[in-house]
């Protein structure tokens, strides 16, 4: 028996919009810890890890660990039928091949049940060890999205370099090149507008912009994005989900042949 009630149902709608283009099918895992997902894109270049902690739900019942294979496009279609203010409850049962999404309006005067078919998904779960990153950049998520979009119109790859001077985003394409430097900036009243750079060592890595631009679909979930970089490791682009958990995107670098 599974019953997860989320007052701020819009969070789940935003999560689906953020990942459905990167990953088409995935297993959602439900345990005492929370509702989670780990999945790679079809080319195994990027990985998304989602956690919505049980404490963040208004009601959380999960009698035993359950894995639900879901087509994310279909789930997104169903969640789009929920109003922006609706409360969403996810209901499931052991041994059934469906999951139900219940949408309640704030005034409780409209209740909708959407039943969706589950599928068997043979997915590989990867162990991601904790790593010490050479540099961690925290910046406004909208600013990062803007940079990725702008650079994506010029080139296919971005070189992200962190030095004492700041974080530099560079691309080159047929029409020319672009270089954007963001300096550390903490002298603002709103901490979410700051750019903070923690650097142990300078680092420079190259990534495909197509994936970076896909990650920025999570911008609506958090005002701040954290970018963790180490040479020889995938970059981690993390959006915290208020009070509940996170979406982390891992992207393998492009390396010199």
């Amino acid at each position: 028996m599974l019953e997860l009630r989320l007052i701020q149902g819009s969070l789940l709608k935003k999560v689906l919009e953020a990942i459905k283009d990167l990953v088409t099918e995935a297993n959602f895992d439900c345990s005492a810890t929370g509702f989670s997902l780990q999945a790679m894109d079809s080319s195994h270049v990027a990985l998304v890890a989602l956690l919505l902690r049980s404490e963040g739900f208004d009601h959380y019942r999960c009698d035993r660990n359950l894995s639900m294979g879901i087509n994310l496009n279909n789930m997104s279609k169903m969640l789009r039928c929920a109003g922006p203010e609706d409360i969403i409850t996810i209901k499931g049962d052991d041994g059934t091949d469906t999951v139900t999404f219940m949408f309640e309006s704030q005034k409780q005067d409209k209740i909708s049940d959407f039943e969706m078919k589950l599928m068997d998904i043979d997915s590989e779960h990867l162990g991601i060890p904790d790593a010490e990153y050479q540099a961690i950049v925290r910046m406004p998520s909208a600013e990062f999205a803007r940079i990725c979009k702008d650079l994506g119109s010029i080139g296919d790859t971005v070189v992200i370099s962190v030095t004492k001077e700041g974080v530099k985003f560079f691309t080159r394409g047929d029409v020319g090149s672009a270089n954007i430097v963001c300096r550390q900036n903490t002298s603002v009243d709103k901490p979410e507008d700051s750019t903070v750079i923690e650097m142990n060592e300078p680092v420079s890595l190259t990534f495909a912009l197509r994936y970076m631009n896909s990650f920025t679909k999570a911008t609506t979930l958090s005002e701040v994005v954290t970018i963790s970089l180490s040479s020889e490791l995938p970059v981690v682009v993390e959006y915290k989900i208020a009070e509940m958990g996170y979406i982390r995107f891992y992207l393998a670098p492009k390396i010199e042949d």
Binding site: H44, E124, H125, L126, G127, L233, A252, K254, E256, D257
Partner: peptide
């Protein structure tokens, strides 16, 4: 020329 690494080259099945 740069080659695209894959996630599975860094993280192993758990």
């Amino acid at each position: 020329n740069r080659i695209q690494m894959s996630i599975t080259q860094f993280y192993r099945s758990s």
